[in-house]
């Protein structure tokens, strides 16, 4: 840990601390709406970190992370509604469930040499398969959804992840900041170096003694587990779950946008990406409302156009470019 801090550079340290201080203090001044936007920013930054670990560092393209998100969300939520097991305990069951799924997908893919687009399609296939399965799973409400009641005893207490926006705000902030530190730590650990090697050239990585299967599996373990925690947050924040939403490929896509826009394989890319995308989407919605246009599609059209523009002009993402502008180090891939 001391190492990352040491390498951050004076400006970087200052900026990091400043940002954290501002975010911790924000609820003093912010209204509900702003808080809800920031919660989304943290949520996407967090999930972006989780996905970026697998793709940005270990070089494995997953387009099915909704699987781990959904399994995390459903496990914790179902444990609470069916058995009264609270989320702080439930998360420790949700993690192994999602991690096991991730390890299975990884094992299947990497043992059988399914790589690149094929691996991506494998991950989609598993997520879609599970989505349809949950659509027909009666215990969790099938396609009619699973709901967290708001008036059962204790459901509004923080230890059951219930309560006002402040709770979710700080929770999401801790998740996002924690994930960023974890990723920064891993990046400069031997494991992080191994991931980079595997991403850059698997054969050369092998030649310097790296067990690439193992390295990829560990990346998947981290990524799926972290995503599952995000899923638990999702379940208890929205308090309703539908397979067609939480397992949808749209979820998988949405959670990879921030790291790609921000900068794949960078530590702050997911954060920067989330800081750009979420407020942009929100302000578009607000603009539409102000103009009196009731066309939710317009926001998404603009979103799509922006993706195309950014990937055409800044394929390495915004953060490496921004960091250079700000004179910060650490933008390196």
């Amino acid at each position: 840990m001391t190492n990352i801090w040491h390498n951050a550079g004076a400006r970087g340290k200052l900026l990091c601390l400043l940002l954290l201080a501002v975010l911790v203090a924000t609820p003093l001044a912010a209204d509900r709406y702003l808080l809800s936007v920031l919660i989304l920013v943290f949520y996407f930054a967090y999930l972006g970190q989780a996905w970026n670990l697998l793709m940005g560092f270990a070089g494995q393209l997953s387009l099915g992370h909704a699987l781990y998100l959904g399994l995390g969300a459903y496990t914790a939520t179902a444990l609470w509604t069916l058995f009264g097991i609270g989320p702080w305990l439930g998360v420790f069951i949700a993690i192994p469930v999602a991690a096991a799924a991730g390890m299975f997908v990884g094992w299947l893919g990497w043992r059988f040499a399914i790589e690149g687009v094929y691996f991506a399609l494998l991950t989609i296939a598993f997520a879609e398969f599970t989505r349809i399965g949950f659509d027909h799973l009666q215990v969790t409400g099938a396609s009619a959804g699973l709901f967290l009641s708001v008036n059962s005893p204790g459901s509004d207490k923080w230890w059951n992840l219930g309560g006002g926006p402040l709770l979710y705000y700080y929770l999401a902030l801790i998740l996002a900041a924690g994930a960023t530190f974890l990723v920064a730590y891993l990046r400069q650990s031997p494991l992080g170096y191994r991931w980079l090697a595997v991403r850059e050239d698997p054969e050369a990585a092998r030649a310097v003694g790296i067990d690439i299967f193992r390295a990829r599996m560990i990346a998947m373990l981290f990524s799926a587990s972290m995503t599952a925690v995000g899923g638990v947050f999702y379940g208890f924040y929205y308090r309703n779950l539908f397979p067609s939403q939480v397992f949808d490929i749209g979820r998988s896509i949405e959670l990879i946008l921030a790291p790609i826009i921000g900068g794949l394989g960078t530590i702050f890319g997911p954060v920067v990406g989330a800081l750009i995308l979420t407020p942009l989407g929100e302000s578009l919605t607000a603009l539409m409302e102000a103009l009196g246009i009731n066309a939710p599609g317009v926001k998404l059209i603009f979103y799509g156009l922006m993706l195309m523009v950014i990937i055409s002009l800044r394929p390495d993402g915004v953060w490496p470019w921004l960091a250079r502008r700000l004179g910060l180090s650490g933008a390196r891939k």
Binding site: L61, I256, I301, Y303, G304, L307, M308, P315
Partner: peptide, 15 residues
């Protein structure tokens, strides 16, 4: 890279 193509075309698909 595949993910770059993917983003471009997902953007197009969204539009």
């Amino acid at each position: 890279a595949e993910h770059e193509q993917f983003i471009l075309l997902v953007g197009l698909a969204t539009v």
